[in-house]
Each structure stands twice: as C-alpha cells, then as structure tokens.
C-alpha cells in the first residue's frame, strides 16, 4: 500500500531534526534543555502579531525569537543558572499574550501544535540554506562551546571568547526553534531539542558520537512520525514527539558502563 506525503515538508523537517539533535546536545550539556520551551513560547506572541498584520507568521516568530535569544543571553551573562521564577514568568506571559492575540481557535491550535500547511520550493531552499549555515557554525564552534560549558575560566584562558560564542549559539538555537515551530508548534518544538539529545547522551561515550546519535534520533523520530501520521491519520507534531519519547524509553534499556 502506498502512502504519499509531500516531499518538501519531509525534507525540511528531517534536516531540521538533524540540526535540533546537534543544537540540543549542547543545550543538554549547558543544562539549558528547558530553554527550548521558553523560546518556543516567546515565539508565540510574534506569530500572533504577524497573523494580525497579515505578514507571514515566521517573520513574527523570527523577530520574537531574536529578542528572546538576546534576553536569555543577558540572563546567562548575569547569573550562572536561569532562575525557575524567571523561566516561569516568561513562559506563562508569552503563552497568555500569544493566546490573546490569536483571534481564531484554528490559528491558536496551528500555532500551538503545528502542522505544515505548504512548503514552497523557494521556502525549502531557504530553509535548507539556513540549516546548512547553522550546521557549519555548530561544527566550527563545537570546541569553543565545549570548553565554555566545561569551565568558563578554562575557556577564557584557552582563547575562547565565551560571551560571543554563547550569543552565536543562542541565535542558532533560535533558528532551530523557528524551523521546528512550523511542524511541531510552540508546545511541542522544545521536545525536538530535548528528547533526541537525551537519547544520544544515554547511548554514547564521546562527543562526536553523542552529536551524531542525537541528530539521528531526531531524524528517525521525524521520519517515523511522518510515516505513522500519514498511515494512521494522526496529528503530525504529537506523533513525532511520541516516537522520540519511545526512542528515549528504549535507550534506557542500554546500561551505561
């Protein structure tokens, strides 16, 4: 039996998941996995304002995420750990504001749970270029990021400009959230950052393998999620997240030596 799904959204989602695995691995090591949830909720008012002004929602999301990454960067510079209350306030306020601004139930559901409408060829090319650029940046920054999260003093004495590297990382992080928002929505996109990286951490012992396995876990979740949602007519975003969570559950069976 042949199941059809559009190839452009699948390609964009698979490559986004690969990027999210890599970005999420560093988020996990930096102990900021939950920042994905904060950022995706920050995007919500941006999406809503764009819808209000009849601009493509992604532009609104991008603007809000840019502000969000600057906000998180500043918080991280001033304190070592983001406080629970700061996360809680930003998280709830952004969600509430977004929900108020989005006028119809349908818009709200789309923004919260995603689901691709259409991806044009130019949208696909633009997306792939952005993902390629983000992967190159992550490849070049991996050493800087690793030393920075290990010990800022050690990184500084090793020639790493920790502040600048963190800012670039947060921008790539935001781009990943923005790309994921399209098919997972604001509620679930954080899972694409957290869950595949948690699988990678469970299964590997070295940085290179960690990044590769996390990226693969993200891509397998998206690939299987697309397939299962087409076969069983399930909502795409939740299906992807359930598959990723099952992978994490399976990874727990591997005992770490």
């Amino acid at each position: 039996m042949l199941y059809t799904f559009e190839i452009y959204p699948l390609l964009l989602a698979l490559t986004t998941a690969g990027l999210a695995g890599v970005v999420g691995s560093f988020a996990l090591m930096k102990r900021m996995s939950l920042a994905g949830d904060v950022m995706s909720h920050v995007a919500l008012p941006g999406l809503a304002i764009a819808v209000l002004f009849r601009v493509h929602p992604l532009w609104g999301g991008a603007a809000a995420l840019l502000l969000g990454s600057l906000l998180i960067w500043q918080i991280e510079r001033r304190t070592t750990v983001m406080s629970d209350s700061a996360i809680g306030v930003v998280f709830a306020a952004a969600l509430a504001l977004g929900a108020l601004l989005l006028q119809t139930q349908e818009e709200l559901i789309d923004a919260l749970f995603g689901g691709f409408s259409t991806v044009t060829l130019s949208g696909l090319i633009l997306g792939l270029l952005a993902i390629g650029l983000a992967l190159i940046i992550m490849y070049r920054l991996r050493g800087h990021l690793l030393l920075g999260l290990f010990s800022p003093e050690l990184a500084h004495s090793s020639g790493v400009r920790v502040d600048r590297v963190n800012l670039i990382y947060f921008l790539v992080f935001s781009l990943t959230i923005l790309l994921g928002l399209q098919f997972l929505g604001a509620i679930l996109v954080g899972a694409l950052i957290i869950v595949p990286a948690a699988v990678g951490r469970q299964l590997t012992h070295t940085l290179g393998n960690f990044l590769i396995v996390s990226a693969l876990a993200g891509m397998i979740s998206v690939g299987l999620g697309f397939f299962l949602s087409a076969v069983y007519h399930l909502a795409l975003g939740p299906t992807i997240v359930v598959v990723a969570s099952v992978l994490f559950g399976l990874s727990l069976f591997k005992k770490k030596e």
């Binding site: 690793l146 030393l147 800022p152 020639g159």
Partner: peptide
C-alpha cells in the same frame, strides 16, 4: 579549574577536550 561547571557524566572525554582547545588555537 577547581571544579567543572558541566555535569561530569556527559559523553565527553579528555581527548575531546584536548582536541577542542587545539582546534580553538
């Protein structure tokens, strides 16, 4: 450093850390 900021139980080895510092420089 006296201690490291990251969780020590990460999939990271000293080979990774030494390579990271060598790459940066």
């Amino acid at each position: 450093p006296q201690k490291i900021d990251a969780d020590r139980h990460l999939p990271v080895t000293f080979r990774n850390l030494l390579s990271a510092k060598a790459e940066v420089n």
